[in-house]
Design a protein around this nucleic acid. Structure first.
Lengths: 210, 210
DNA sequence: GTCTATATGGCGATAGAC
DNA sequence: GTCTATCGCCATATAGAC
């Protein structure tokens, strides 16, 4: 029996379980699967290694739990935005602003996801497929919006990838961009990212001639 | 004395040194610093661990050598393209096509660079700074081209990042894109990447109203 | 230069007392 | 459930024969 329920917790997990997950998230996202150690996760969680293995029998099990959680955070409420009944321009604007805010709050998330996914595609692809994301529905809704706005000349998958690229890549490539374009000045880089809300939007609107 | 020079080699390195570098590149790029082992590198090179340490005293030294080499491959001849005297549209077109070809040939390169750079920014930033890339010169030349083409309304750094994002991100995010947009079909994904040469170009040209 | 053998340490994982 | 102690393994790195 679990005599250690945390009544104040929003989920049904015991208190150490929550501390472990929080610690594991921090360590895995910062160092990746190979770079993270169970010892460090235990230290951050304020428990010892043995207890870690008591709750999550293997490193891989703990990792997959974290990865799944991270992936669902990384995928925003795009479905919601796209299927709303706002005009197309508003939809695009909301999506960009929301996503850049999300990325600003979780700058390590995308590179973690993308790197792990590159190194263990087979093992992780099932996890991302069970994320509840429905790409064909998104495509369908987005396509409808484009049709209504009279845009037929640009393929929707490329448009979708263009938008995502321009939002995510600058966060993933922070070290290069910050160093080469802003002399390592973090304030300038952060400002640049915020400015992108406007400039990505402008770019897309002009490209689509809306 | 080095009694093992490889006369046929284009560089000045001994034969085992070249085999080691080739093997290390393959392993490091595929598995990252933490995931790679000296044993595997030695195996791929067809030598033993001890010899590895004879030539490169520490894993980190070998890694930095590979990283530097990888980074200079990852950074294309952008300088050359930008400072040529072709019209702006041609410059943009050449750059996109050349870069996508480069990325198609080396699809693991960008995620390797970006991930290692995220995890060890301080240690690697000096390496990328010594890459010979001159960003302010590129900006300057590119800016001149834009001025001549009568484009003043869009900030150059954002434009530069937009172009790079749309080229690089789809390669970095291959597992997600392939799985979600193309049902895991690699042929379809590869075709998509090739199509991007045209669609990225179109997108930019329209956005800039050239 | 190249090898075998080994030192040394940290890793994931488990045993077993409490 | 939580701890200390420890196992077995594999990592980087070195010693020393040839």
């Amino acid at each position: 029996m679990d005599n250690n329920k945390n009544i104040n917790s929003p989920n049904n997990l015991s208190e150490p379980e929550n501390k472990i997950l929080e610690a594991a998230k921090k360590v895995f996202i910062q160092k990746g699967f190979d770079g993270a150690t169970m010892q460090e996760i235990a230290d951050v969680a304020g428990i010892n290694k043995a207890l870690l293995h008591y709750y999550f029998r293997k490193k891989e099990i703990l990792f997959k739990t974290i990865f799944q959680q991270a992936f669902s955070e990384f995928v925003p409420n795009i479905q919601e935005v796209i299927s709303s009944d706002k005009p197309l321009r508003k939809k695009i604007k909301s999506f960009i602003e929301g996503y850049i805010d999300l990325l600003t709050k979780n700058p390590y998330l995308p590179i973690f996801i993308l790197n792990e996914l590159s190194q263990r595609p087979e093992k992780l692809i099932t996890i991302i497929k069970s994320s509840g994301l429905n790409p064909s529905l998104i495509i369908k809704n987005f396509d409808k919006s484009l049709q209504e706005a009279g845009i037929k000349s640009y393929p929707i998958k490329h448009l979708l990838v263009n938008i995502l690229s321009m939002c995510i890549f600058p966060v993933v490539a922070k070290p290069v961009i910050s160093s080469f374009l802003f002399d390592g000045n973090d304030k300038s880089y952060q400002l640049f990212i915020q400015q992108r809300k406007k400039y990505i939007y402008d770019f897309i609107i002009k490209a689509l001639k809306i």
